Computed example of a mutant assay.
Amino acid sequence: MTLTATDLARRLADRAEAVCRHYLSNGRREGAYWLVGDVANTPGRSLYVRLSGPPSGRGAQGRWMDAATGQHGDLLDLVGLVLGHTRLGETLLEARRWLALPDAPTNSQPNPRLKPQRSRGSSERAARRLYAMASPLPGTLGETYLQARGLDARLAAGVLRFHPSCYYRPTTTDPPDTPTAWPAIIAPVTDLAGRQTGAHRTWLDRHGRGKAPIVTPRRAMGALAGGGVRFGLAQDVLAAGEGLETILSLGGLAPDLPLVAALSSAHLAALALPPSLRRLYVVVDPDPAGRAAALALAQRAEAAGIQTRALSTDLDDLNDALRRMGPRALVALLASQIAPEDLVRFQPVA
């Protein structure tokens, strides 16, 4: 019997959780969904796969979507994207292999089901629209939030923006009555050429005193690989870290030091570095993923002939240390990790 692509997708859907455990091993099950960061099997929650549901139509078992990029499809599409296939025959052969079915002749034509570039372009445009719709940061709840974190909002005012009612898609673990709109800080993700390729949202509570009481108060959208949220133009020296609060904490200690927030440990490890760079500071988050990402980035930088220095407080992330110690004490703690020629840069904002 000859099985079509639709037949194979249906058989994969019947074993949706096993497929996810095999091809998206860095994800996890939450209720009726498998959650993972993206089709590259990055840890996270952006991509979700339905593990149960009707065999076809809305909410069908095996259907998936990446909320950050807009990519979606069935499990045959997903297998092809995870493995980087460009030919339908490759994906059909892999599906047959995984399902323990006899091999069939392969299709040498390009796979019309795999269209990541179109999805990426749509998501990039959506990210740019969201940023354009947002308002300047000064005088908003976004400024209130940063100040509550011990940060000088003036350092962020030229980059970050504020949206008073930004859409939030609740997860399966959010309460059923979770509102679908919250105030949010909107940050532009840009590439080395300064082109905006994505956006990052930090949803806030209604008073701006903390993050919104939702399961995932931070999410990114668009093309993120290699990019980041940039503060200042990097030439020979740059400091990189994961979170916005971490990088803005460093900005308060060294206002003229170019900075970039990669937004996650996986994206920090894959950060694209300017070709003119000669020295890179990597802010290390004190958890296994943070340390591994910082090491991976440092190794890539050193292989390219870039001097690297780690900035770490060992126990706290930089923002926690800033609020606990104050800026001058934190600079004193970090002084031994800073290149002597850069010490002049570390003059905390008055």
Rank of each mutant, 00 (worst) to 15 (best):
L259N: 01
G222V: 10
L101Y: 10
Q307L: 10
E302R: 09
I247W: 03
A184Y: 07
L311W: 14
F162I: 07
T202S: 15
F231Y: 08
D320V: 12
V229H: 07
T2W: 06
E341M: 12
V349A: 03
A292P: 11
G80K: 00
W98N: 08
R58K: 13
A261G: 01
G37E: 06
A240R: 02
R96G: 13
S165Q: 15
T308E: 01
T180H: 15
L76D: 02
D316L: 05
G150I: 04
G251F: 00
R87E: 08
L204P: 15
D14R: 15
L192V: 04
P138V: 05
P54Y: 06
D287E: 04
E30W: 13
A225N: 11
D316Q: 06
N26D: 12
G243W: 03
V215M: 13
G208S: 10
A292W: 13
T190P: 06
R118M: 08
E94P: 06
R323W: 00
T42N: 12
S264H: 00
T86W: 11
P348E: 08
Y168F: 15
H267V: 00
R154W: 04
A254R: 00
L297K: 07
P340Q: 14
G57R: 11
Q347K: 03
L224N: 08
L51D: 06
Q299V: 10
R50F: 11
A5K: 15
E341T: 14
T6P: 01
A9P: 05
L101Q: 09
L51G: 03
Q347H: 03
S123V: 03
M1A: 13
L250Q: 00
V283L: 04
R291M: 08
I186M: 13
E124L: 03
Q61A: 05
G80Y: 00
L273Q: 01
A127K: 10
L277Q: 07
G194D: 06
P116L: 12
A240K: 02
G84E: 14
V36A: 10
L8C: 12
L334V: 05
I185C: 14
L8E: 12
L253I: 04
R29K: 11
G80V: 00
P102Q: 12
G194F: 06
R345A: 14
L330K: 01
L75S: 10
K211P: 13
L318Y: 05
A134W: 02
P348K: 07
G326H: 06
N319L: 04
A234H: 04
G27N: 04
L155T: 12
Q196M: 15
L297T: 08
Y281M: 02
F346Y: 08
N26M: 11
L83C: 11
L192Q: 07
L47M: 14
L76V: 03
L318P: 04
A223K: 15
